[in-house]
C-alpha cells in the first residue's frame, strides 16, 4: 500500500439551495493533483451551481471546500478572507466560462487579455509581459500577429482559446471549466478538445469540467460524476461509468447520445 497523496481539492458535503429549490445536495469528492474530473448531467441538474460553489462565486449553504494551498497546506476556501480568495482565483485557480465573452475583456487586445493576470500579480515589465503573451497565443494556436487585435474580431473558437490562454498564463494548478465547448461547431470543438487535452497533460493541471456533452468527458476526464436534480447519482472512472452505467439515469444519458 503506498501512501495516499494529499488531495488538491477536497469537497465535503456541499449543499446549496435556492429557497425550496435544491441547487446541489450533499456533494463530496476528492480531486488529486493531475486529475481531471468530469461532472455531467442535464440542464438544471445543479452542475453549474456546484462549480460556482467550488470556485467561490457562490456561497454554499453547508459543507467545506478544502484546497491544498502552496504555502499553508489544506485550507477551507469558504473560511478564507476575500482578498485571499481573490488572490487564489488569480494565481492557483482558473475559470473558463462557457461564453468566452464572460471571461474576456472584449475592449482590450488579445495581448492585454493574456497579460491582465500577470499584471494583477505584479508584473511591471512590458516586454516580459508581451513575450509571455506571444508564447501563450502560440500555445493555443493563435497567430502572434493578432496579438493587438480585439477579441471581438476573433471567431468563437479563437475567443475560447484566448480565454484559456488568459487563464493559464499564471500557471494555475486547478482549472474550473463550465461547458468549455458549448456553442462551438463540432470541428472547432474537436480542435479545442485536442488542445485542452494537450495542455492538461503537459502542465499536469487538475481540472473540474462541467458539461452535458459525454464526448468531452470521454476525451478529457479521468473520473466522472453524474448529477441529477442536485444529487450525485453515480461516480467512478470515466470509461467504467460510460461503458457500464449502473444507475437508470446514467443509462438513459449514455443511450441518448446520437450515433452517426
Amino acid at each position: 500500500m503506498t501512501e495516499q497523496p494529499t488531495p488538491l481539492l477536497s469537497v465535503e458535503a456541499v449543499s446549496k439551495s435556492y429557497g425550496a429549490q435544491i441547487g446541489c445536495k450533499d456533494v463530496s469528492f476528492d480531486l488529486y493533483p493531475g486529475e481531471v474530473m468530469g461532472i455531467v448531467g442535464e440542464s438544471g441538474s445543479g452542475k453549474s451551481t456546484l462549480l460556482n460553489c467550488l470556485a467561490g462565486h457562490l456561497p454554499p449553504d453547508t459543507g467545506r471546500v478544502m484546497f491544498d494551498t502552496r504555502t499553508d497546506g489544506p485550507c477551507d476556501t469558504l473560511a478564507m478572507s476575500e482578498p485571499e480568495r481573490r488572490m487564489l482565483s488569480r494565481t492557483d485557480w482558473a475559470f473558463v466560462h462557457q461564453n468566452a465573452r464572460d471571461g474576456l475583456r472584449m475592449g482590450v487586445s488579445a495581448g492585454g487579455n493574456v497579460g491582465e493576470r500577470l499584471m494583477a500579480v505584479g508584473a511591471r515589465h512590458y516586454r516580459g509581459i508581451r513575450e509571455q503573451a506571444v508564447d501563450w497565443l502560440g500555445r493555443v494556436e493563435i497567430d502572434a500577429h493578432r496579438i493587438d487585435d480585439r477579441p471581438r474580431t476573433f471567431s468563437g473558437g479563437m475567443q475560447q482559446r484566448l480565454q484559456i490562454a488568459r487563464n493559464l498564463v499564471t500557471g494555475p494548478r486547478l482549472v474550473f471549466m463550465d461547458e468549455p465547448t458549448g456553442g462551438l461547431d463540432v470541428s472547432v470543438q474537436a480542435r479545442l478538445l485536442d488542445l485542452l487535452r494537450g495542455l492538461v497533460r503537459d502542465l499536469g493541471l487538475s481540472a473540474i469540467i462541467v458539461t452535458h456533452d459525454l464526448a468531452v468527458v470521454r476525451l478529457l476526464a479521468d473520473r466522472l460524476m453524474v448529477m441529477k436534480s442536485g444529487h450525485v447519482v453515480e461516480e467512478g472512472l470515466t470509461d467504467q461509468v460510460l461503458d457500464d452505467p449502473q444507475h437508470a439515469y446514467t443509462q438513459l444519458l449514455v443511450s441518448s447520445v446520437l450515433q452517426v
Binding site: 475583456r105 482590450v108 487586445s109 495581448g111 492585454g112 497579460g115 491582465e116 499584471m119 511591471r124 512590458y126 509581459i129 508581451r130 496579438i147 493587438d148
Partner: peptide, 10 residues
C-alpha cells in the same frame, strides 16, 4: 496597467 499596456501596444 492593462490600460497602459494597451497604450504601448497601440
Amino acid at each position: 496597467h492593462v490600460k497602459l499596456y494597451e497604450d504601448i501596444s497601440k
